[in-house]
Design a protein around this nucleic acid. Structure first.
Length: 489
DNA sequence: CGTGTTTGACCTGCGC
DNA sequence: GCGCAGGTCAAACACG
């Protein structure tokens, strides 16, 4: 609470409220203008968003409360003027003090409203993801009656068992479930965006259906088939990487993980461990855990996919974070101004080709950097040909954190440039800029905060088993810096 | 004995 | 076609 003051003080100065308030008390019945200005500050500082829909709602809902405050204030100011004419300075001080308190309360109210909105959005998004997932699974089951095995897993496992059936299913899906595909694609895989004549935009990365494919995994057949496959397993494309500072083998995120592999990644002496979620059989979610080569105290956890089962609160927080971040990653460009709309038209394939990275990954990756504060939210999307139009915040970008050579600085010169101009920004400005870039950020942020605050003490996560659960020792708080980081907001 | 980890082999995609 | 690297599988192993 006290930490809010430093940010509220400039708020007060910029508003120059005493003058305005005196003007109001002189008889201007329409007080709405000042509250609106205050909200304008809020929205301007944050560059809220283009349509101003949310800010309008906030303004409208906020006006009533502000008017009440102003009325109360005007009366008090009037009294002070009439009774303390000999001490205008003292009167001014009282006036300022009262006004300060009023605005402080208003500010708190705004924050509360914002928190509620964020929370609601977060919850709704989680529900949406689950609903879409259930819908997809339900449709697949309906189409694959011959597959007696009905498990909650995504279609990945089904493809392993019935490759041909999977093809049939996907074709049926693409043909008869356009709506479903459309929703899914928008939410989870923007490569599903139908761009007539641009098959290249559907370039798929590692086949989603090959998660457990082994020898039976089906290589790419053709572009159209890839579209269908992407539509049926839409939860794997975007990856969300979370950087944390932790000595533990991996962060506790409320889920149970089983390690299924470990590889030495090029350019990083630390091995990369591969985990898959074991909370539900067939859960498509996987994660990679690797320590940063530069700073081994930094743990890089990359999540992939969405859970196909209910999650405990702690796990839900992380899941919401990744889901929101993934959604933001996929939809972010369209939500922002100038040039942002370019992104959906940037096929990964073409992007990759333009950079000719040896191990370029087709996955869009968003990094939530919890090691350096909020000004470290990176969108590790395959760089667009013209990075000048890159609209998203790239604070604290660390190219090689993921061990992806494609993110080497020399291949992301534009991103580095953006990083440089954002460097001077304060944390608050960074947050507002991020919010301005995409409202989804708030969901990811809120979920990340929840995860950071809620996960460490719960000692949940894979702790069911000593091996997997790791290390979430009660005495060793997870993500200490993360907590510090977010608390500064 | 069940569960999870380790680790070498294998598969796949991509660049040359 | 070859080599490299990422990702995955699965047998062997460890542990409670």
């Amino acid at each position: 609470m006290e930490m809010e003051h430093p940010r509220e003080l400039p708020f007060l100065r910029s508003g120059d409220f005493p003058n305005k308030n005196s003007g109001e008390s002189d008889g201007d019945p329409d007080h709405s203008c000042d509250p609106v200005k205050e909200m304008d500050f809020f929205s301007n500082a944050n560059q809220w968003h283009d349509d101003h829909q949310l800010s309008k709602n906030l303004s409208s809902s906020f006006e009533s409360g502000v008017n009440t405050g102003l009325n109360l204030l005007s009366s008090s100011s009037g009294v002070s003027k009439t009774t303390n004419e000999e001490k205008p300075e003292a009167d001014e001080m009282i006036h300022l003090k009262i006004e300060f308190e009023r605005l402080h309360q208003e500010n708190r109210r705004l924050r509360t409203m914002l928190d509620q909105i964020v929370k609601s959005y977060n919850e709704l998004q989680g529900q949406l993801l689950m609903a879409v997932q259930n819908l997809t699974l339900g449709n697949q089951r309906g189409k694959t009656q011959k597959n007696a095995v009905v498990d909650p897993r995504s279609s990945a496992a089904l493809d392993v068992n019935e490759p041909s059936a999977s093809d049939d299913r996907t074709q049926d899906l693409s043909a008869s479930q356009a709506n479903t595909v459309e929703v899914v694609s928008k939410e989870h895989n923007h490569r599903m965006i139908q761009i007539p004549g641009k098959h290249v935009s559907v370039e798929d990365g590692p086949d989603q259906t090959s998660q457990s494919g082994g020898p039976t995994r089906c290589p790419k057949l053709d572009q159209s088939n890839k579209e269908e496959q992407a539509s049926e397993v839409p939860f794997r494309k975007p990856r969300v990487s979370i950087r944390t500072r932790s000595e533990a083998p991996f962060i506790s995120d409320g889920c149970q993980w089983r390690k299924y592999g470990q590889k030495m990644a090029k350019g990083n002496p630390c091995p990369r461990a591969y985990y898959r979620c074991t909370m539900s059989a067939g859960c498509p979610v996987r994660k990679q855990v690797q320590r940063c080569a530069e700073d081994k105290s930094i743990l890089i956890t990359t999540y992939e996919g969405n859970h196909s089962h209910p999650l405990p609160p702690a796990a839900m927080a992380v899941a919401n974070t990744t889901s929101a971040a993934a959604a933001m990653l996929l939809s972010g460009p369209t939500a922002s101004k100038d040039g942002l709309s370019h992104f959906p038209s940037f096929p990964y394939a073409s992007t990759m080709a333009s950079f000719s990275s040896p191990s370029a990954s087709p996955f869009p990756i968003i990094t939530l950097d919890l090691t350096q504060g909020l000004n470290a939210v990176s969108f590790l999307r395959p760089p667009p040909p013209s990075a000048a139009t890159f609209p998203l915040p790239l604070h604290g970008y660390h190219p090689q954190l993921l061990g992806h050579p494609m993110y080497a600085p020399h291949k992301l010169s534009a991103l580095s440039t953006m990083q440089s101009w954002q460097r001077p920004a304060s944390m608050f400005e960074s947050v507002t800029a991020a919010i301005a870039s995409d409202p989804n950020f708030t969901a990811a942020l809120a979920a990340a905060i929840s995860a950071v605050i809620g996960a460490p003490t719960s000692n949940n996560g894979g702790n069911k088993s000593s091996s997997n659960g790791v290390p979430n020792l009660p005495g060793s708080p997870q993500l200490p810096q993360s907590c510090t980081t977010f608390s500064t907001n």
